[in-house]
C-alpha cells in the first residue's frame, strides 16, 4: 500500500473517531453551541441598537466563532490526553501528518456547523438581510475561514496539549495567530451581509487572503505537527 493511501486511511480513521466521540458525548451540541448562542445574545444586550448590531454583526459572528473554537480545540485534545491516547498514537508510529489532517477534518466539520448556527443567530437576532449572491459569498467565506481555523487550531492545540497550564496557554498562543482570519473573515462577511453599504464584490480579495492563510497552515501543520507532539 502506498504512503499516500496509508496516510489517507489513517486521516479518515482519526476524523471518524473524533466525530464519533462528539456523537457519543454531544459536547458540541449540548454545551458549545449554547455557549456560542449565549455570546451572541450577550452582544445583543450590550449593543442594544438595531443599526449598530446590523453593522457589527459580521465581527460578532467571528468573535463568537473564535471563543467557541477555543472550547472545541481544548476538548478535542482533552480526549487525547485523558487516558494517554495521543501518546499511544505516537508509540504506535502512526503518521503524525495523518493525525493532523484527520483532526483538522473533524474540527472543520464541527466549526462549520457552529458557524452556520452563528450566522443563523445573527440573521434572526440582529435582523441581518442577505442577497442570494451575498449568501453564496458567506458560504465560501465560512468554508475558507473554517479550513484555516481548523488547521491552525489543530497545530496549536497539539502544541499546547503536552504543556503545563494548557487551558490558559492555548488562547494566548492561538488568538494572535488567527487575527488575520478574524480580519479577513469579518470583511468578507460584511460584504456578504452588505453591512455599512459594503458591496458583495469587495469580499472576494478577503476570501483570497483566507485561502492563502488556510494553505499556509495546512502545509505548515502537516510538517510541524509531528515534531511538536513528539516534544
Amino acid at each position: 500500500m502506498s504512503t499516500f493511501e496509508q496516510r489517507r486511511r489513517v486521516a479518515f480513521a482519526v476524523a471518524r473517531k473524533d466525530l464519533t466521540i462528539e456523537w457519543n458525548s454531544r459536547i458540541l451540541v449540548n454545551q458549545v453551541a449554547p455557549f456560542a448562542a449565549i455570546i451572541m445574545v450577550l452582544f445583543a444586550f450590550a449593543l442594544d441598537n438595531e443599526g449598530i448590531l446590523q453593522r457589527v454583526a459580521p465581527g460578532l459572528v467571528w468573535l463568537a466563532t473564535l471563543f467557541s473554537m477555543l472550547v472545541v480545540i481544548q476538548r478535542t485534545f482533552a480526549v487525547e490526553s485523558a487516558d494517554g491516547a495521543l501518546d499511544a498514537l505516537r508509540v504506535a508510529g502512526v503518521d503524525p501528518s495523518a493525525i493532523f489532517i484527520g483532526k483538522s477534518l473533524a474540527l472543520m466539520v464541527q466549526l462549520f456547523a457552529l458557524e452556520l448556527l452563528l450566522v443563523g443567530t445573527a440573521v434572526v437576532l440582529y435582523g441581518v438581510e442577505m442577497s442570494l449572491v451575498g449568501f453564496a459569498e458567506a458560504i465560501v467565506t465560512l468554508l475558507t475561514a473554517t479550513v484555516g481555523l481548523a488547521c491552525v487550531g489543530t497545530l496549536y492545540g497539539g502544541l499546547a496539549a503536552g504543556a503545563r497550564g494548557r487551558e490558559t496557554l492555548l488562547p494566548l498562543l492561538l488568538l494572535p495567530v488567527v487575527a488575520p482570519v478574524l480580519i479577513g473573515a469579518t470583511r468578507a462577511t460584511e460584504a456578504a451581509f452588505g453591512s455599512g453599504g459594503a458591496q458583495v464584490s469587495e469580499g472576494w480579495p478577503w476570501i483570497l487572503l483566507l485561502a492563502v492563510f488556510a494553505v499556509i497552515f495546512a502545509v505548515v501543520g502537516s510538517v510541524a505537527f509531528g515534531p511538536l507532539v513528539d516534544e
Partner: peptide
C-alpha cells in the same frame, strides 16, 4: 510501527465504546 508498548495508561478514548476503540486501532 512494529512494536507495541502498553505503559501506565491504556491509550483508550473514554467516550468511545470498547468496540469503537478497537475498530479505530484496527483501521490505523
Amino acid at each position: 510501527t512494529r512494536v507495541g508498548l502498553l505503559g501506565h495508561t491504556n491509550g483508550l478514548y473514554l467516550d468511545l465504546t470498547v468496540e469503537q476503540n478497537i475498530q479505530f486501532w484496527a483501521s490505523t
